[in-house]
Nucleic acid binder design. Structure first.
Length: 353
DNA sequence: TATCCACCGGAATTTATGGAAG
DNA sequence: CTTCCATAAATTCCGGTGGATA
């Protein structure tokens, strides 16, 4: 039934971006100056996760390139140091000479300033994951360079950053709020994917709308649900997707997305997350106690060794940054899972005893 | 209220990793 | 293959904070 698996991969861009005409227009307008050799406007793309912010940016850059080539690069910011970010940008530039390893931050900025003579667009995905705003300051020193800040909540990001200069730079940025799709819009998108990746006529319009409704307009979730429904139908050996396959698809899709989110994390994170998940909510004290208790077993089959408390706190912060847990409290911190249906890939045996 | 205690998180220090040069 | 170097991760150190207790 599935004829092309790649159609459902999370990193496969849509062949045709549907129902985002006005957003594409806004972006092209912001980038208009790049066609005349000037820097584009700064852009903020905000919207909940999975609605297609990244796809929108990538697709529109392609549209722009159809008119004229524009230097650009795409950077996943989560946990990236400002040095690493700058190096990524330099590396992506076709003519930049990559500075040696011992280059100072100022030298990196200078190298970039020299290289960027034509307009360049830097897409900063998950910008809320940047440890600080140093990299943004440096990028601001490059005249021909403009950025696209992709975040979940624009005002929260800017206030939390707390840097007036950075805030001022994005003050008159083009702000595009990327909304969830409507049920019928998402059904259109899913139909296009079905045509590209599934056999003919295996899914009905009303089934696609049922998916669009259940996933509340989140494209990533919807696409994975469609894939899961097709997989389930295949397993059962039927030739069309039945409503029961659709019903069962959502939990599978959730699991797949959860796996994608957790994949980049280490065993340390998994162990900590599993402990928080098992408890639902617990204090830092309890968490550390339980970690110590299960650590020998949790790490038994790994080359890694258990980590000390201070390091655990850093890892917990990362889990928070990934939206997997919440942290609250000043003196003693309370940890809680954001979504109890998201399980850790590892299982903790007995936590007590 | 004063004191103790454990925890938090910033900063300094050490250790691990990886890549280039000899 | 070793040596060197730089970066990133892990650890240690430590001042600050809040809650418990007398």
């Amino acid at each position: 039934m599935i004829t092309d698996r790649s159609v459902f991969r999370d990193d496969t861009p849509p062949r045709e971006l549907m129902h985002r005409e006005s957003e594409v227009e806004s972006l092209l307008r912001a980038w208009g100056p790049t066609l005349h050799g000037e820097a584009g406007d700064e852009v903020i793309l905000s919207g909940s996760s999975g609605v297609g912010k990244t796809s929108l940016a990538k697709h529109t850059i392609d549209r722009l390139e159809a008119r004229d080539t524009v230097d650009h690069c795409y950077i996943e910011c989560l946990g990236v140091s400002s040095d690493a970010l700058l190096r990524d940008v330099i590396h992506a530039h076709p003519e930049a000479s990559v500075p040696g390893r011992d280059a100072t931050p100022a030298a990196l900025t200078e190298a970039l300033r020299e290289a960027v003579e034509r307009p360049m667009i830097v897409v900063l995905d998950e910008i809320e994951g940047l440890p600080d705003s140093d990299a943004l300051d440096r990028l601001a020193d490059v005249p021909q360079l403009s950025t696209v800040a992709i975040c979940h909540d624009a005002t929260r990001w800017r206030t939390r950053l707390g840097r007036e200069d950075v805030d001022a730079r994005y003050q008159d940025a083009t702000h595009i709020a990327v909304d969830r799709f409507g049920v019928s819009q998402l059904a259109d998108i899913l139909r296009a994917r079905a045509r590209a990746g599934l056999a003919d006529d295996v899914v009905t319009r009303s089934q696609l709308e049922a998916i669009g409704d259940e996933v509340a307009g989140v494209a990533r979730f919807g696409i994975q649900a469609l894939r899961a429904a097709a997989e389930r139908a295949d397993e059962r050996g039927v030739y069309r997707i039945h409503d029961a396959d659709v019903d069962a698809s959502f939990e599978r899709a959730r699991q797949r997305i959860r796996k994608m989110n957790l994949r980049s994390l280490t065993l340390h994170h998994h162990v900590l997350y599993a402990l928080v998940h098992a408890a639902g909510e617990l204090s830092g004290v309890e968490l550390h106690e339980r970690y110590d208790a299960i650590a020998p077993r949790a790490y038994a089959e790994s080359t890694l060794t258990p980590i000390v408390r201070r390091t655990r706190r850093n890892h917990l912060r990362k889990l928070e940054a990934y939206g997997l847990i919440t942290r609250e409290g000043e003196g003693s911190t309370q940890y809680a899972v954001v979504d109890a249906s998201i399980q850790s890939p590892i299982t903790i045996g007995k936590i007590h005893s």
